[in-house]
């Protein structure tokens, strides 16, 4: 993999531990990766630490969480050292996060238009009028027909797919350099999923952003991303170009691929993953 000259995000030896009365191992242990202006996928099963990694980069964990790293730099800035105030300026402005389910992550008591414009007013210091224009423009970019009408709706009045497009427009309105998308399409139907991904792909490409795409869906990540990190038990066990996922060598990645029922390669029985405690150590 040719190293890019200046990655947007550079993480070395990141460890995230949640304090507990019991001796539990850290949720993320010594993770290192870079994200440039590309689409990087993180694949893992529940509890592998993929969302925890994404949230640690955004510094969204409760303050008691112990986050340590040799390096966690975003556009040359040390994310571990910056003040909370500075972090608030970074979040939403140069780094934004798309969450899984628009039903729970949009504010239910604000209209769609108000919530999208809020980002632009806060971060871009736009006037209400300018923010409104930008909102309309943004809703058009995510292919929403009749944006004037949609702006006045509340989140419960829109469908799941439309809600996710609204969230994308809210996250992209300040033109961030990096988007972290945590299972952005898992709550959506197949047909809507294609549309939302196409929009995300278009916008990320057009504005040459970096995308960290967190997902459990191997087929999706394989076809959508440029590069894939595979996480198991808080560690990155393998890193591959997305189109070479079939050539994975780590037994966990291989196990995941073989456990997946496939239309193109039907098999009588699915291989059952035998977990090796050594994977969590190395």
């Amino acid at each position: 993999m040719p190293e890019q000259p200046q990655p947007l995000l550079s993480v070395r030896n990141l460890t995230v531990a949640f304090p507990s009365l019991h001796a539990v191992p850290p949720a993320v242990r010594g993770v290192s990766f870079d994200v440039g202006r590309e689409k990087v996928g993180i694949i893992g099963e529940s509890g592998s630490g993929k969302s925890t990694t994404g949230r640690a980069v955004m510094r969204l964990h409760p303050s008691a969480t112990r986050i340590t790293a040799d390096r966690m730099e975003f556009q040359g800035e040390n994310l571990l050292a910056v003040s909370e105030r500075r972090m608030q300026a970074i979040r939403g402005h140069s780094m934004a996060m798309i969450l899984q389910d628009p039903k729970y992550s949009l504010n239910p008591v604000m209209t769609v238009g108000e919530q999208i414009a809020e980002t632009a007013i806060l971060h871009e210091k736009l006037s209400r009028r300018a923010a409104r224009r930008r909102t309309l423009d943004m809703l058009e970019k995510v292919h929403i027909r009749d944006p004037e009408r949609v702006m006045g709706l509340y989140p419960h009045e829109v469908s799941g797919g439309m809600g996710q497009r609204i969230m994308i427009s809210m996250m992209l309105i300040a033109r961030p350099a990096l988007i972290i998308a945590d299972e952005p399409t898992s709550a959506l139907d197949v047909s809507v999923r294609q549309q939302v991904l196409t929009i995300l792909d278009e916008l990320v490409g057009a504005n040459s952003m970096g995308l960290l795409f967190i997902s459990h869906d191997l087929n999706l990540v394989r076809s959508f991303c440029d590069r894939v990190l595979i996480m198991y038990s808080g560690r990155i066990v393998e890193e591959l170009p997305a189109n070479a996922l079939d050539k994975a060598t780590h037994p966990y990645t291989r196990g995941l691929l073989e456990a997946l029922p496939s239309l193109l390669h039907p098999k009588d029985r699915l291989a059952v993953l035998r977990r090796d405690p050594a994977w969590a150590k190395t």
Partner: peptide
């Protein structure tokens, strides 16, 4: 066909109907 292709992953060429 749409459901079948959807299960195979992402197709960059997919057209987005407005809605």
């Amino acid at each position: 066909r749409m459901l079948r292709e959807g299960s195979l992953g992402y197709r960059p060429a997919a057209a987005v109907p407005p809605g």
